[in-house]
Design a protein around this nucleic acid. Structure first.
Lengths: 345, 345
DNA sequence: CTGAAAGCGCTTACAG
DNA sequence: CTGAAAGCGCTTACAG
């Protein structure tokens, strides 16, 4: 068989070049699993080299690039801002953004295998995943099909997956130092899910600030739970039951902090006069609550932008500086923190 | 052969329907000349009827239906919930949702003419517009191209455009009746944009409740401005400067109400002991604020669902019950309202 | 993992 | 004109 460069190459051409069967080439093109890594690599190289296009897909490459964003849920303080950042860069780059929600409790979670196949069929150029609940193996089908993936702030950044996050450790440290500088000593950490890497990073940031200032961390003052207001309320109750109550709390996120605020109000504890409180996230919730929350702001908008930038770099075959980027957080001081006064205990 | 309507029709299906061979159908599809006029006409009709698409073209017309949603901004308390409703039904209906943001202050607003042309080229099946700032003439290019459009809660529902909204008048009336039943008489309406139809409807709901209870509306107690917290704070200041201060305020939305809460707190006015307050929207903001806001909940999630349902009905050529649907609002009583006490004013 | 073989959707040269 | 038959590009269940 002669490979005529003026015609579009067929699977048979690629098969001949690489010395495997047409069936095997077909499997590689469709991202099936039952192909050895060695064969897959060689075939992919030949496909690339010959400029193979599967039939009917030629039309797709003509239109604007379409990427997909998958959210656990879009109904949070967090998701819309990330989305805004993504849409912001998408407008500049002339890229279209398609939406899907994975965490729909009604329907069954669509398998990554089917989802990646559909994306390939539809000519989608990449996927941004915004979720806290994420397993590395879910990305595998996309990687096999050469569909670029970026994960935003995964609970546990999987190895080999491109991800964008915030500097949680540095943020936790800054929050705690702020409280220490106000004179607080008995500072509690009321965090979220113990297994979440972001929560751990915030807690260790707290820990390191405490140690740096020569303050012993009391294990009773460190509580993990869930990133929800209810946990904040319950956590405050637990802290107040201690013989030595804290005078300040660093909450794992703003939702927890709002729960603490509510419970404090119910008990007649004034914030910040009786209790200083720092949150994490810096969403609108922090600004709108009464009193307004001192909080560590995550650069959610920029995280959205950065995720799309990294996705496009992959899609265009440009090299990435790093498979993991963490953006700086910033402590924003509002009304919920004040210097410690010595009349409580 | 059984014609399965869930699958894409093949040439074989069309051949069976029309009673000619597959080869002949193929010729018709490819516009070959050696087919009689009679046969060609019959086959073309069957192709149209069955919705046949040749394999290469199926990517655009044959794939999952893609609709587009245009937001002014997705970064609000309001937009994400509407979006959730849209995505909810989209998942059920197997429809994909593409996003665009129109209110990007950086870039120029893309003309509806170009946007509608692009949607036609890309095979988009319809457009949902979520915006308060909307002119009827912007829909015209879409209507000319037969692209279905649904507008969610426009400030002024344009004639001849399909739209979904909330029962603002009934909501305003329910909010005001709640305050009247608590014994309040001097009730202020601190609303949003005077020209917004939703704001007017809420205000007239307030008005009608007042009149029904035989309470004269005092014009000084009705203030319009913007749907923002700053307006709430400034409005409260203006109301407190009156010789006869109100004992209760119905705010045009939750953002205004939160601004009122902040200003009240700054001035040492207790809510609800000294001042009762009702908001409008019933987003997370109402639940999270301290005290939690009594508010008229808009069915934002259902508004999203309904908008997509109406869009799909149009796209599938089904008749619409109405070009305008208003969904019921519901008063949710929380902590910011209490019976009037007679020691103020 | 791999590929021979069966099969699908489609096209086309050609016999009638 | 029409369609049986050969064939193309591709996919997939299955034997090895």
């Amino acid at each position: 068989m002669i490979i005529d460069s003026s015609e579009r190459p067929t699977l048979a051409c690629i098969a001949q070049i690489t010395g495997v069967s047409i069936a095997t080439v077909s499997k590689v093109v469709n991202g099936r699993e039952d192909v050895s890594q060695v064969t897959r690599t060689r075939v992919l190289a030949a496909l690339e080299e010959a400029g193979y296009r599967s039939p009917g897909r030629s039309r797709i490459s003509g239109g604007p690039m379409v990427v997909e964003v998958a959210f656990d849920s879009v109904d949070s303080n967090y998701a819309p801002i990330v989305l805004n950042g993504i849409l912001d860069l998408a407008a500049d780059a002339g890229v279209e953004v398609l939406f899907s929600v994975t965490g729909n409790p009604a329907g069954p979670r669509r398998g990554p295998e089917r989802k990646s196949q559909r994306m390939l069929d539809e000519g989608r150029k990449g996927l941004i995943i915004v979720t806290s609940d994420f397993a590395a193996h879910e990305v595998a089908p996309f990687q096999r099909k050469r569909i670029p993936v970026v994960v935003i702030d995964p609970v546990n950044p999987p190895f080999g997956v491109v991800s964008v996050g915030a500097a949680n450790w540095a943020g936790g440290r800054a929050a705690t130092e702020h409280l220490l500088e106000l004179g607080h000593i008995r500072i509690a950490y009321l965090g979220g899910s113990k297994s979440a890497e972001s929560n751990q990073a915030r807690m260790y940031g707290y820990w390191s600030a405490m140690e740096l200032h020569g303050v012993q961390v009391v294990s009773d003052l460190v509580i993990h739970g869930k990133f929800h207001p209810e946990h904040g309320a319950a956590g405050l109750a637990a802290l107040l039951a201690l013989p030595e109550q804290p005078t300040a709390i660093f909450a794992g996120n703003d939702e927890i902090a709002v729960g603490i605020l509510k419970e404090a109000r119910r008990r007649g504890i004034r914030v910040p006069e009786d209790l200083s409180l720092v949150g994490f996230d810096g969403t609108a919730l922090a600004e709108d609550s009464v009193p307004a929350l001192t909080s560590v702001a995550q650069p959610l908008h920029d995280m959205g932008r950065t995720s799309l930038r990294m996705l496009l770099q992959q899609a265009l075959g440009e090299p990435l500086d790093s498979t993991r980027i963490e953006l700086a957080t910033q402590l924003v001081v509002r009304e919920s923190t004040a210097p410690m006064v010595a009349n409580r205990g």
